[in-house]
Design a binder for these strands. Structure first.
Lengths: 324, 324
DNA sequence: CTGAAAGCGCTTACAG
DNA sequence: CTGAAAGCGCTTACAG
């Protein structure tokens, strides 16, 4: 049987109330009593039961993180930073991999609510979350609009798309193609595409965007792109995994990079940079995004709903490698 | 205020006991009462408080996962599978990134204990965990020996090392070098090295292993390897990130792969395979490892300590790409 | 400076 | 088939 506060009390010869007080450093307690209590706790290896504590306080310091899939380097790195920062602030993280599936997202949400999480950080397209948000559960979203009242944090996607496109133009590309996810999703990430299209038009060029439908392999789309656009000499992929696949496909077709084709991605995770350091990319400030998301969520948890910034876009950085 | 079982009871016109019973499907309840209770729960959007439930049952269905860093593709993928399988079994996952630091591991362990996790899955070198294990906290380890009594689950490292080395030999390499982590750590992963050395000797060759010290960048070690071993024509790196770095270094030095140098890694994660599909590697069955780890942990949680297999090594697979 | 009592939201014997 | 009571392990007014 795990020792409880009563066992400590018995050994220290005081009441449970007093043990609780030294545990929480609350009220006045004589040094002697403190000593006795600490000694007793060590003697029987006592650790407070946070369940009981949370039940009373109506505060768990638990945060739920819903991401599509931590196997993906971007989400894996995001999860790392979010968890690390949470830990440093005394929050604990419940990990949820939704695979972007609505049914899973809803199940996870319900699980998080039952576990009384203080708040949720979501990277989600689906909006089942909305119903739960009405339950006064503080939520922030990363790179996805969930509702009018849920704060979104992300990288400066427009600037990133602009930087990427302008780099390809500056490098002399004549036929620049963009690959992106499905446009019907109202995500800030679509600003990457918007920026690409704006910059192209500003330069009198015709933007061409290949779209990877939801839940579909981009391999095929990329292969089709190569078939249909033999003149392409610049590709801006909206994430690094797509960019890597473009590079692989180019090799297969014996197109020299960067000689005949220049490629730039988006994300700039540690993993991809270490595996494919030559990839030019727009790096998201993942740690800063994490920090900001937690700060905003933390405010919401503390009840400061007034000055919650609804949209926060953090600066990106161009990482130039050998693929441009 | 969140609704409690009392609110439901009031609306349904029954006692809290009855509500609890329909919640748990326990004892006999008339269909009519069930109906009334369900309706009441929906009306006020009631969700049971798992904290209270867990407090009573002394069972949280919470599992702690301690990994070095989810940014690393291998651990990110491991976390994904472990979490997904946990979710399918009704377990919830508390994520902890220890960065291999002993102080963090201990803090996390204490946190997990305070939160009354039912068990812990650890990927850890440090052994502070031992003290906690004595508290009857069920623990399983992945690819690391933690104590005589903690079950270890991993890939068949010896067979993996053998397959890798034999492949390089079969491909005609004359000077095969191995890169691995620090040997002083008693991890099953050191069997990769052992297999390399055995196979080399069986073939009358002199094994040469470059060691990457703990917490040190392998970049430098790899650079040194290239300086000191100009005749090397085969490199077996003990993980894919190292292998990728070897490839990058080879490019820098204009060594043709696989012409002048053949490279094989270890892990075979989805991420690396998608970013660098040409990398030949030994693939770990990450999903199976996860499943097995959870099954064993689950048995330990249910109190079946007798037939816990202390060491489980799952089959690896050679993934041949263009780097060999 | 310290303790007895009530309560956080549940569940489970025990009665009826 | 249903309810009142006790208790899971804490914390916090309230008294003293």
């Amino acid at each position: 049987m795990k020792p409880s506060i009563h066992d400590v009390a018995k050994i220290a010869g005081v009441s449970p109330t007093t043990v609780s007080r030294v545990l929480n450093n609350r009220g006045y307690i004589s040094e002697k009593t403190k000593e006795k209590v600490y000694r007793a706790m060590e003697e029987i290896n006592y650790f407070p039961n946070d369940l009981a504590r949370s039940l009373f306080r109506k505060r768990t310091n638990l945060i739920g993180l819903i991401i599509p899939n931590s196997s993906n380097p971007f989400f894996g790195e995001l999860a790392f930073h979010i968890e690390s920062i949470c830990a440093s602030m005394g929050y604990k993280l419940l990990l949820c991999n939704s695979l972007h599936r609505k049914d899973k997202e809803e199940k996870y949400l319900e699980m998080l609510i039952r576990n009384q999480v203080d708040g949720v950080i979501a990277v989600t397209y689906n909006r089942g979350i909305l119903n739960y948000h009405r339950q006064n559960l503080p939520i922030v979203a990363i790179d996805h609009y969930l509702s009018e009242t849920i704060p979104v944090i992300g990288s400066d996607n427009y600037d990133g798309g602009k930087k990427a496109t302008e780099l390809l133009i500056a490098k002399g590309c004549r036929h620049i193609i963009h690959i992106n996810g499905p446009i019907e999703l109202k995500t800030p990430a679509n600003l990457r595409r918007k920026a690409y299209e704006d910059v192209m038009r500003q330069h009198g060029r015709q933007p061409i965007t290949y779209e990877v439908p939801f839940h579909q392999n981009y391999q095929e789309v990329i292969s089709k792109l190569f078939d249909e656009q033999p003149a392409a000499d610049g590709i801006f992929a909206s994430d690094d995994l797509m960019a890597a696949t473009v590079i692989t496909e180019a090799k297969k077709r014996r197109k020299d990079i960067p000689g005949q084709l220049k490629v730039i991605g988006y994300d700039g995770t540690e993993a991809v940079q270490s595996i494919l350091p030559e990839l030019t990319t727009i790096q998201q400030p993942i740690e800063l995004i994490s920090k900001t998301a937690i700060e905003i969520l933390s405010k919401a948890i503390e009840g400061e709903f007034d000055d919650l910034p609804l949209e926060t876009y953090l600066p990106v950085q161009l990482l130039e490698g050998g693929t441009t």
